[in-house]
Design a protein around this nucleic acid. Structure first.
Length: 145
DNA sequence: AAGGGCTCCAACCGCGAAAGT
DNA sequence: AACTTTCGCGGTTGGAGCCCT
């Protein structure tokens, strides 16, 4: 068997097991407390202080997209928000972070997700009405534009 | 009623920019 | 000035949970 845990440690990496994947409520709390104390910065120090086994990158992402106050989490884009994204994308291109600054409570990730869902939706619709492809998946739900 | 396909979104990655040493 | 570390962005993806038959 030999479940060897040997590992060459470059003195500074704090014992190299980095946690990935979904965040637990407990981790969120640690992150929130850190931000309360020090502000939304120094993401990498969270790991070097041994508070969480997450990269700075992961901590920042979690804060910015999910934990930061006043986010409209779990609320679908309103028709107006959709309009705004579509218009701004036409103006600026795929500048999601920039576009998000025009929408209160939405993050670049939200905008990006909205856009790619929409793109796929449009592609499907186009596909299913193309001459050659007669395999039409029945119009399941409402067709959104 | 179950099981396979489809959607959506949370979180990852790579890379370039910015900040630090 | 040069090298290292951290941040921020855009693109991508795996899987939970919804349809559908």
């Amino acid at each position: 068997m030999m479940e060897g845990r040997k590992r060459i440690v470059h003195h500074h990496d704090e014992m190299g097991d980095i946690k990935k994947g979904p965040w637990k409520a407990e981790e969120d709390e640690v992150l929130i407390n850190h931000v309360k104390k020090y502000g939304p910065r120094d993401w990498s120090s969270i790991r070097s202080k041994g508070l969480l086994q997450r990269t700075g990158k992961s901590c920042r992402l979690r804060w910015v997209n999910k934990l930061r106050p006043n986010l409209k989490n779990g609320v679908k884009f309103s028709a107006e928000e959709e309009r705004t994204v579509i218009d701004l994308q036409a103006q600026f291109g795929n500048k999601w972070a920039k576009i998000a600054t025009y929408l209160h409570g939405r993050t670049d990730n939200d905008v990006k997700n909205f856009w790619s869902s929409r793109q796929k939706r449009l592609k499907r619709i186009l596909q299913s009405s193309t001459p050659s492809s007669s395999k039409s998946h029945k119009n399941s739900k409402e067709v959104r534009i």
